[in-house]
Amino acid sequence: MLILALTYVKPNEEADKYMEPHMAWVKHGYAKGWFLGSGRKVPRTGGVILSVGQRAEIEAYVAQDPFTIHGVAEYDITEVAITTTAAGLDILKG
């Protein structure tokens, strides 16, 4: 599993300008079966996406995020080898 932590490097107002295309990018990640959960950080300094898939593919996809393209956010990608899950979450094991 990959944890995609994005941090805004520009003000929230700038992020808001690209939120619609960013959310279309997120929805496409779900459609590909790569994204399992996502949301904003609290306080709103960026977001987090829980992802499965090949790291190289996910990294290439992150490069296509409008937030990345327009320099709104930077991503930190952490790979986690999940070994134990709650019932029904076996998809997290990789």
Rank of each mutant, 00 (worst) to 15 (best):
G46T: 00
G47D: 06
K93Q: 08
L92V: 02
H70D: 08
M19G: 02
S38R: 05
G94N: 13
F67C: 01
A81L: 15
R44D: 10
M19H: 09
G46W: 07
T83V: 14
L4V: 09
V42K: 14
E14C: 04
P43G: 00
E14N: 08
G33S: 07
R55I: 01
A31M: 07
A87R: 11
G37K: 04
G88C: 09
V9C: 10
I58P: 03
P21H: 04
G94K: 15
T7G: 08
V48L: 13
L6A: 13
V80T: 11
T85I: 09
S38N: 13
H28T: 12
S38G: 07
I82C: 14
A60V: 05
H22T: 06
R44T: 12
L2K: 09
H28Y: 10
Y18C: 02
V62W: 01
A60R: 08
G46V: 00
A73Y: 06
T45Q: 12
G88F: 06
K41I: 01
E74M: 08
P11A: 05
L92T: 11
T45K: 12
K27P: 05
F67M: 10
F35I: 11
V72M: 10
K32S: 04
I3L: 15
Q54Y: 07
I91Y: 10
Y18S: 01
W25R: 05
V52W: 02
A24T: 10
H70T: 05
K17V: 13
T7M: 08
A87S: 14
N12R: 15
G94W: 07
K32D: 07
Q54W: 05
A86F: 10
M19L: 13
F67W: 05
Q64Y: 06
H28P: 00
T83D: 15
L2G: 00
Y8M: 04
I91K: 12
G29M: 14
